[in-house]
Amino acid sequence: MTSTAPPTPATLPLGDDALILSHRLGEWAGHAPVLEEEVALANIALDLLGQARALYTGLADVLGSEDEIAFLREERAFRNCQLVEQPNGDFAHTIVRQLFFSTYQQPLYARLSPVLPLAAKAVRETAYHRDHAEQWTLRLGDGTEESHGRTQRAVDTLWRYTGELFQPIEGLEVDWQELAEEWSAGVRDVFDRAGLTVPEGPREGAWSAGAGRQGLHTEPFGRLLAEMQHLHRSHPGATW
Protein backbone atom coordinates (compact mmCIF):
# COMPACT_ATOMS: atom_id res chain seq x y z
CA MET A 1 0.00 0.00 0.00
CA THR A 2 1.31 3.42 -0.95
CA SER A 3 -1.63 5.34 0.42
CA THR A 4 -0.79 8.10 2.87
CA ALA A 5 -4.41 8.65 3.88
CA PRO A 6 -4.88 8.64 7.63
CA PRO A 7 -6.15 5.35 8.99
CA THR A 8 -9.93 4.95 9.18
CA PRO A 9 -11.09 5.58 12.74
CA ALA A 10 -12.26 2.29 14.19
CA THR A 11 -15.79 3.43 14.95
CA LEU A 12 -16.46 4.94 11.52
CA PRO A 13 -17.62 1.66 9.94
CA LEU A 14 -20.08 1.18 12.79
CA GLY A 15 -21.46 4.70 12.38
CA ASP A 16 -21.77 4.24 8.63
CA ASP A 17 -23.59 0.92 9.09
CA ALA A 18 -26.08 2.60 11.39
CA LEU A 19 -26.64 5.65 9.19
CA ILE A 20 -27.09 3.76 5.96
CA LEU A 21 -29.43 1.14 7.39
CA SER A 22 -31.44 3.90 9.04
CA HIS A 23 -31.72 5.65 5.70
CA ARG A 24 -32.92 2.49 3.99
CA LEU A 25 -35.53 1.84 6.70
CA GLY A 26 -36.67 5.44 6.36
CA GLU A 27 -37.61 4.64 2.77
CA TRP A 28 -40.42 2.43 4.11
CA ALA A 29 -42.31 5.41 5.54
CA GLY A 30 -45.76 5.40 3.98
CA HIS A 31 -45.22 2.01 2.30
CA ALA A 32 -45.34 -0.51 5.16
CA PRO A 33 -47.69 -3.51 5.03
CA VAL A 34 -49.49 -2.60 8.27
CA LEU A 35 -49.69 0.55 10.35
CA GLU A 36 -47.96 -1.15 13.28
CA GLU A 37 -44.93 -1.72 11.05
CA GLU A 38 -44.86 1.94 10.01
CA VAL A 39 -44.26 2.61 13.68
CA ALA A 40 -41.86 -0.28 14.28
CA LEU A 41 -39.63 0.31 11.25
CA ALA A 42 -39.47 4.03 12.03
CA ASN A 43 -38.51 3.17 15.59
CA ILE A 44 -35.61 1.04 14.43
CA ALA A 45 -34.56 3.68 11.89
CA LEU A 46 -34.57 6.34 14.60
CA ASP A 47 -32.53 4.18 16.99
CA LEU A 48 -29.95 3.57 14.28
CA LEU A 49 -29.81 7.22 13.34
CA GLY A 50 -29.25 8.11 16.99
CA GLN A 51 -26.40 5.58 17.15
CA ALA A 52 -24.83 6.95 13.97
CA ARG A 53 -24.97 10.49 15.31
CA ALA A 54 -23.37 9.46 18.61
CA LEU A 55 -20.59 7.57 16.84
CA TYR A 56 -19.95 10.43 14.39
CA THR A 57 -19.95 13.00 17.15
CA GLY A 58 -17.21 10.97 18.79
CA LEU A 59 -15.15 11.46 15.62
CA ALA A 60 -15.59 15.23 15.38
CA ASP A 61 -11.91 15.95 16.10
CA VAL A 62 -10.76 13.75 13.24
CA LEU A 63 -13.50 14.04 10.63
CA GLY A 64 -15.55 17.15 11.39
CA SER A 65 -19.19 17.59 12.31
CA GLU A 66 -21.75 14.80 12.04
CA ASP A 67 -23.21 16.49 8.97
CA GLU A 68 -19.83 16.82 7.28
CA ILE A 69 -19.25 13.14 7.90
CA ALA A 70 -22.66 12.13 6.54
CA PHE A 71 -23.13 14.56 3.69
CA LEU A 72 -19.73 15.55 2.38
CA ARG A 73 -17.87 12.28 1.99
CA GLU A 74 -17.71 10.53 -1.35
CA GLU A 75 -18.88 7.00 -1.88
CA ARG A 76 -15.41 5.48 -1.58
CA ALA A 77 -14.95 7.04 1.86
CA PHE A 78 -17.93 5.24 3.36
CA ARG A 79 -16.99 2.15 5.37
CA ASN A 80 -20.39 0.54 5.91
CA CYS A 81 -20.79 -3.10 4.99
CA GLN A 82 -22.56 -3.81 1.73
CA LEU A 83 -25.40 -5.60 3.49
CA VAL A 84 -26.94 -2.42 4.91
CA GLU A 85 -26.89 -0.55 1.61
CA GLN A 86 -28.86 -3.24 -0.23
CA PRO A 87 -32.22 -1.92 -1.49
CA ASN A 88 -35.29 -2.68 0.61
CA GLY A 89 -36.90 -5.08 -1.86
CA ASP A 90 -40.10 -6.59 -0.50
CA PHE A 91 -40.89 -6.84 3.20
CA ALA A 92 -39.25 -10.27 3.45
CA HIS A 93 -36.06 -8.84 1.98
CA THR A 94 -36.03 -6.03 4.52
CA ILE A 95 -36.72 -8.41 7.39
CA VAL A 96 -33.95 -10.82 6.38
CA ARG A 97 -31.54 -7.89 6.05
CA GLN A 98 -32.62 -6.86 9.56
CA LEU A 99 -32.12 -10.39 10.86
CA PHE A 100 -28.63 -10.70 9.41
CA PHE A 101 -27.56 -7.27 10.57
CA SER A 102 -29.11 -7.21 14.04
CA THR A 103 -27.76 -10.68 14.83
CA TYR A 104 -24.34 -9.16 14.12
CA GLN A 105 -24.80 -5.70 15.63
CA GLN A 106 -26.36 -6.75 18.93
CA PRO A 107 -23.51 -8.96 20.23
CA LEU A 108 -20.96 -6.56 18.72
CA TYR A 109 -22.40 -3.61 20.64
CA ALA A 110 -22.71 -5.76 23.74
CA ARG A 111 -18.99 -6.52 23.57
CA LEU A 112 -17.91 -3.00 22.69
CA SER A 113 -20.29 -0.88 24.71
CA PRO A 114 -17.74 0.02 27.38
CA VAL A 115 -15.43 1.57 24.79
CA LEU A 116 -17.91 2.99 22.27
CA PRO A 117 -19.28 6.51 22.57
CA LEU A 118 -22.79 5.07 22.66
CA ALA A 119 -25.42 5.37 25.32
CA ALA A 120 -26.02 2.21 27.32
CA LYS A 121 -29.46 2.02 25.75
CA ALA A 122 -27.93 1.29 22.33
CA VAL A 123 -27.38 -2.32 23.36
CA ARG A 124 -31.00 -2.61 24.46
CA GLU A 125 -32.11 -1.04 21.20
CA THR A 126 -30.23 -3.59 19.14
CA ALA A 127 -31.73 -6.40 21.22
CA TYR A 128 -35.18 -5.08 20.36
CA HIS A 129 -34.25 -4.87 16.66
CA ARG A 130 -33.09 -8.45 16.77
CA ASP A 131 -36.27 -9.60 18.43
CA HIS A 132 -38.38 -7.74 15.87
CA ALA A 133 -36.48 -9.37 12.99
CA GLU A 134 -36.66 -12.84 14.55
CA GLN A 135 -40.39 -12.63 15.19
CA TRP A 136 -41.07 -11.56 11.63
CA THR A 137 -38.75 -14.18 10.17
CA LEU A 138 -40.71 -16.82 12.05
CA ARG A 139 -44.05 -15.44 10.86
CA LEU A 140 -42.94 -15.17 7.25
CA GLY A 141 -41.01 -18.42 7.11
CA ASP A 142 -43.84 -20.36 8.71
CA GLY A 143 -46.85 -18.39 7.42
CA THR A 144 -47.91 -19.18 3.86
CA GLU A 145 -46.28 -20.77 0.86
CA GLU A 146 -45.85 -17.35 -0.66
CA SER A 147 -44.30 -15.78 2.42
CA HIS A 148 -42.01 -18.77 2.85
CA GLY A 149 -40.86 -18.55 -0.77
CA ARG A 150 -40.22 -14.83 -0.59
CA THR A 151 -38.27 -15.19 2.63
CA GLN A 152 -36.11 -18.04 1.37
CA ARG A 153 -35.35 -16.02 -1.77
CA ALA A 154 -34.34 -13.05 0.36
CA VAL A 155 -32.07 -15.30 2.43
CA ASP A 156 -30.46 -16.69 -0.72
CA THR A 157 -29.94 -13.22 -2.20
CA LEU A 158 -28.51 -11.56 0.89
CA TRP A 159 -26.35 -14.48 2.03
CA ARG A 160 -23.37 -13.32 -0.01
CA TYR A 161 -23.20 -10.06 1.99
CA THR A 162 -22.89 -11.74 5.37
CA GLY A 163 -19.25 -12.87 5.26
CA GLU A 164 -18.01 -9.31 5.21
CA LEU A 165 -19.48 -8.62 8.63
CA PHE A 166 -16.70 -10.61 10.29
CA GLN A 167 -13.75 -9.04 8.57
CA PRO A 168 -11.82 -7.59 11.49
CA ILE A 169 -12.16 -3.83 11.86
CA GLU A 170 -8.78 -2.48 12.81
CA GLY A 171 -8.76 -0.87 16.22
CA LEU A 172 -11.71 -2.79 17.65
CA GLU A 173 -10.81 -5.37 20.26
CA VAL A 174 -13.16 -8.14 19.27
CA ASP A 175 -12.76 -11.86 18.80
CA TRP A 176 -14.19 -11.86 15.29
CA GLN A 177 -14.06 -15.62 14.97
CA GLU A 178 -16.13 -16.07 18.08
CA LEU A 179 -18.56 -13.36 16.91
CA ALA A 180 -18.95 -15.15 13.58
CA GLU A 181 -19.72 -18.44 15.31
CA GLU A 182 -22.24 -16.82 17.56
CA TRP A 183 -23.87 -15.21 14.53
CA SER A 184 -24.08 -18.50 12.64
CA ALA A 185 -25.61 -20.27 15.60
CA GLY A 186 -28.15 -17.50 16.11
CA VAL A 187 -29.18 -17.36 12.48
CA ARG A 188 -29.38 -21.14 12.18
CA ASP A 189 -31.60 -21.32 15.22
CA VAL A 190 -34.06 -18.84 13.71
CA PHE A 191 -33.90 -20.61 10.34
CA ASP A 192 -34.69 -23.94 12.01
CA ARG A 193 -37.73 -22.56 13.74
CA ALA A 194 -38.86 -20.71 10.61
CA GLY A 195 -38.37 -23.69 8.30
CA LEU A 196 -35.74 -21.87 6.24
CA THR A 197 -32.69 -23.44 4.63
CA VAL A 198 -29.14 -22.22 5.04
CA PRO A 199 -27.90 -21.36 1.53
CA GLU A 200 -24.97 -23.20 0.07
CA GLY A 201 -23.53 -20.26 -1.82
CA PRO A 202 -20.47 -18.28 -0.79
CA ARG A 203 -20.76 -15.68 1.91
CA GLU A 204 -18.68 -13.06 0.18
CA GLY A 205 -17.95 -11.73 -3.28
CA ALA A 206 -14.99 -13.03 -5.26
CA TRP A 207 -13.56 -9.57 -5.81
CA SER A 208 -10.16 -9.36 -4.20
CA ALA A 209 -10.42 -5.55 -3.99
CA GLY A 210 -12.70 -6.16 -1.03
CA ALA A 211 -16.08 -4.77 -0.07
CA GLY A 212 -17.78 -2.07 1.98
CA ARG A 213 -15.22 -1.98 4.76
CA GLN A 214 -12.62 -1.09 2.10
CA GLY A 215 -14.89 1.61 0.65
CA LEU A 216 -16.05 -0.59 -2.23
CA HIS A 217 -19.80 -0.58 -2.56
CA THR A 218 -22.57 -1.88 -4.77
CA GLU A 219 -24.19 0.17 -7.51
CA PRO A 220 -27.36 1.11 -5.60
CA PHE A 221 -25.23 2.81 -2.95
CA GLY A 222 -24.19 5.66 -5.23
CA ARG A 223 -27.81 6.50 -5.89
CA LEU A 224 -28.61 6.32 -2.18
CA LEU A 225 -25.88 8.88 -1.48
CA ALA A 226 -26.94 11.06 -4.40
CA GLU A 227 -30.39 11.35 -2.90
CA MET A 228 -29.24 11.70 0.69
CA GLN A 229 -26.55 14.29 0.04
CA HIS A 230 -28.06 16.34 -2.76
CA LEU A 231 -29.84 19.06 -0.79
CA HIS A 232 -27.09 19.51 1.77
CA ARG A 233 -24.49 19.85 -0.97
CA SER A 234 -26.61 22.27 -3.01
CA HIS A 235 -26.24 24.91 -0.32
CA PRO A 236 -22.59 24.87 0.72
CA GLY A 237 -22.05 26.18 4.22
CA ALA A 238 -25.76 26.69 4.93
CA THR A 239 -27.23 25.98 8.35
CA TRP A 240 -30.41 23.95 8.57
Binding site: E27, E38, N43, L46, R53, D67, F71, M228
Partner: peptide, 24 residues
Amino acid sequence: IARAPSLRRKAILMAKVQDEAGHG
Protein backbone atom coordinates in the same frame (compact mmCIF):
# COMPACT_ATOMS: atom_id res chain seq x y z
CA ILE B 1 -36.94 11.93 4.75
CA ALA B 2 -34.29 10.65 2.36
CA ARG B 3 -33.20 14.17 1.44
CA ALA B 4 -33.31 15.92 4.81
CA PRO B 5 -30.32 18.28 4.81
CA SER B 6 -28.95 17.50 8.28
CA LEU B 7 -29.00 14.44 10.52
CA ARG B 8 -30.85 16.37 13.19
CA ARG B 9 -33.60 17.33 10.75
CA LYS B 10 -33.71 13.79 9.40
CA ALA B 11 -34.36 12.47 12.90
CA ILE B 12 -37.03 15.08 13.63
CA LEU B 13 -38.82 14.40 10.37
CA MET B 14 -38.71 10.63 10.74
CA ALA B 15 -40.11 10.93 14.25
CA LYS B 16 -42.85 13.23 13.01
CA VAL B 17 -43.95 10.89 10.25
CA GLN B 18 -43.89 8.08 12.79
CA ASP B 19 -46.11 10.12 15.13
CA GLU B 20 -48.66 10.48 12.34
CA ALA B 21 -48.76 6.70 11.94
CA GLY B 22 -49.33 6.48 15.68
CA HIS B 23 -52.17 9.01 15.43
CA GLY B 24 -53.71 6.81 12.76
